[in-house]
């Protein structure tokens, strides 16, 4: 006889195997794992110091010595991309974590209690959803000033409302299920019902949305960096690097092209993973 934990482990493994068999899922897993490893081991694998200016070697084209060439200060672009993965991934993971927590609390409370609290909270989300994401993030990021933490705050302000809506929707669907009623009948507290009985039901859609949004926030943060409103130079943030190379695009195309390619690959990786997760976990999301 298997214990409860063993059975749940087995189910998770099955889902993982299914994810690995999904053509897009496999590519997504590979890309995201490689990126995370790249960020973790950046000091070990980057060939040069990302901020060391080799002034004799400015704007050098890609070669065996500098795989992706050097930038206008003679810094090795590959090394800057590798270190940059730390910036992009930490912004994305932190922002998505913060938004998930806020959205989870708001969505649970709103869906579970309903009534006036629900109306109030949902009207607030309506306001935040009335802005296009990039525009709202731009507005807050520029008001808060430059810096990684301000970017994370700005992105969290933009995204939380989508999570609140998502979670609330799921809670509304299951609120009147028999097992919730039963838990209430035996005298379980609201907190206990929310965390023991409702939370497990929202993890699948939450996981899918969060994975997709890691891609989305990498893109959004790099857009802010590109516009000069997010992370500032000399930090090797990918969007900042594309922006710095913009002046040289006609001749020294590599300065902008490679960092941009990594924004694309990273975003695509998490989007593929999220898309495959949606298939595997059979989650239906509105957006």
């Amino acid at each position: 006889m298997k214990t409860k934990e063993e059975i749940s482990m087995l189910i998770k493994n099955e889902k993982l195997i299914e994810l690995w068999r999904h053509p897009n899922g496999k590519i997504g897993i590979i890309i995201s794992v490689v990126l995370v490893l790249m960020a973790v081991f950046a000091p070990l694998i980057s060939p040069y110091d990302p901020n060391y200016p080799d002034t004799a070697n400015r704007l050098a084209p890609p070669s065996t010595k500098h795989l992706f060439g050097t930038d206008q200060l003679g810094r090795d672009i590959l090394s800057r991309i590798i270190w940059g993965s730390r910036i992009s991934l930490s912004i994305a993971f932190l922002a998505v974590f913060v938004t998930s927590v806020i959205g989870l609390v708001v969505g649970l409370v709103s869906g579970y209690y309903g009534g006036k609290i629900d109306i109030l909270l949902m009207r607030i989300t309506d306001i935040f959803m009335a802005f296009p994401r990039l525009v709202l993030a731009l507005a807050f990021a520029s008001a808060l000033g430059p810096g990684i933490y301000n970017v994370i705050i700005a992105i969290s302000i933009v995204y939380w409302s989508f999570y609140a809506r998502l979670i609330r929707g799921v809670v509304l669907q299951i609120r009147n299920e028999l097992y919730i009623q039963a838990a209430k009948a035996v005298g379980a507290s609201d907190l206990r019902i929310m965390f023991r009985h409702i939370l497990p039901m929202v993890t699948a859609p939450l996981l899918v949305q969060a994975t997709l949004d890691i891609g989305g926030t990498i893109l959004l943060a790099s857009g802010l960096g590109f516009l000069g409103i997010g992370v500032q130079p000399p930090t090797p943030e990918w969007g900042v690097m594309v922006s710095e190379g913009r002046r040289f695009i006609t001749h020294e195309w590599w300065v902008s092209t490679f960092p941009g390619l990594f924004i694309l690959i990273a975003t695509l990786g998490f989007n593929l993973l999220g898309d495959a997760l949606r298939d595997v976990l059979d989650v239906k999301l509105k957006r």
Partner: peptide
């Protein structure tokens, strides 16, 4: 998915 993952500012530069 590639479309939605592509930084528009970068694609614009590359196409130009």
């Amino acid at each position: 998915l590639t479309g939605v993952s592509t930084p528009v500012f970068w694609l614009g530069l590359v196409l130009l």
